[in-house]
Design a protein around this nucleic acid. Sequence first.
DNA 1: CGGATGACGATTTTCGACAGTAGTCACAAG
DNA 2: CTTGTGACTACTGTCGAAAATCGTCATCCG
Lengths: 211, 211
Amino acid sequence: MVATVNELEHAAMTAGQRGPAEHQRREQILQAAGEHFRHYGYRKTTVADLAKAISLSPAYIYKFFVSKQAIGEAVCALCLSERTAALEKIVEETASPVECMRKIYKSLALKGAQLFFEDRKMHDIVTASFEERWNNLDAYNQALIDIIRRVLVRGRELGEFERKTSLEEACRAIHHTMQSFFHPILLEQNLDHLEEDATAVANLVLRSLAP
Amino acid sequence: MVATVNELEHAAMTAGQRGPAEHQRREQILQAAGEHFRHYGYRKTTVADLAKAISLSPAYIYKFFVSKQAIGEAVCALCLSERTAALEKIVEETASPVECMRKIYKSLALKGAQLFFEDRKMHDIVTASFEERWNNLDAYNQALIDIIRRVLVRGRELGEFERKTSLEEACRAIHHTMQSFFHPILLEQNLDHLEEDATAVANLVLRSLAP
DNA sequence: CGGATGACGATTTTCGACAGTAGTCACAAG
DNA sequence: CTTGTGACTACTGTCGAAAATCGTCATCCG
């Protein structure tokens, strides 16, 4: 059986979760966690804080998540899925794969910088998830690679991209070239020249994809 | 006045240093630091340890380095300059710029993994220097970009590479694509597929450079 | 003047006692 | 059977005091 990307995404978003899915309490926990993490940071909010926020005992939280980190991962996954959603939208709305590719780099850089400047606490959580390799990462990277793959396939079909290179190798390689713009640590270190660098790398990749 | 790369490298390697250059004591300090950092790690070795190792008072160390971190930076620069030296050698000995480029990616991945597996403590120091943006980094990145530029220029002269793209933009972009293989944090996260990924990215870049 | 140091102030680190937090479990209530 | 909790353990973080470390400076010596 082959898992679709949405399945993978869902699997990783729900990894570390337990108990009844689609439960009202789960949503409440997630929402409270989102707010508290954003406001006070991951470290400084306790499970008891979340429980109090929705008038519950801390113990009950653990009926839905195996650990505090699992809550963090879910919140992280939610945050990152906003980014991939933006990319999905770009892919859907942009006719030219070449243009699409450029927009993807730009969007990654933009959203990354945005999170850093306007939502620092959440950025810090995402950073932690990258540094400590939380479970939400595989799904995110897989989602990115899948988006790349779709653009590549379409570009090849439309004759805008070359077709000789192995599709999967190209996907992995392109994914690597994007790390400077979505990996929070690298992003932080490149904030000054983010946009021009994103453009430069996008151009490089596009020259490489030219038929 | 234009600074050459060696001047830049030297400038950054000696930033944070003071007192008489080319001094015997400086060499001794550096050597002792290299050994102690490798053995006990940066944090756990005190400048008193270094002083004792060469039978000196701690105070005298500060005649040569402005801080302990400055010693760390110098050791780091030394370690990283071994890598760029290996790349320089490759550039000199490899006739074909295409082949040269491939070897550069491979060498970076190899040396990076080597440091990680065989010299973990030193790898940790380099990691710290990247995380905390020590002064040795600019020189290292500049050295890398300069090596890339030389390969690019030669490739263009020999007709192996295209000539339309701005040289500097191409250099910066290629430098970005290498980060996965020389940035210690990324390297650590990619250890499993390092070699094949390095090859894949090298191939991508080379397709992009094709005339 | 270059080589070298001890004494000193200012941070940092360490450590042990203690408080707070993460996470489990048996069990209660509807 | 689902919703929910109090009581409990083990671990992690915190705090103040003591020790160690960083880094400076006045000074010594040849």
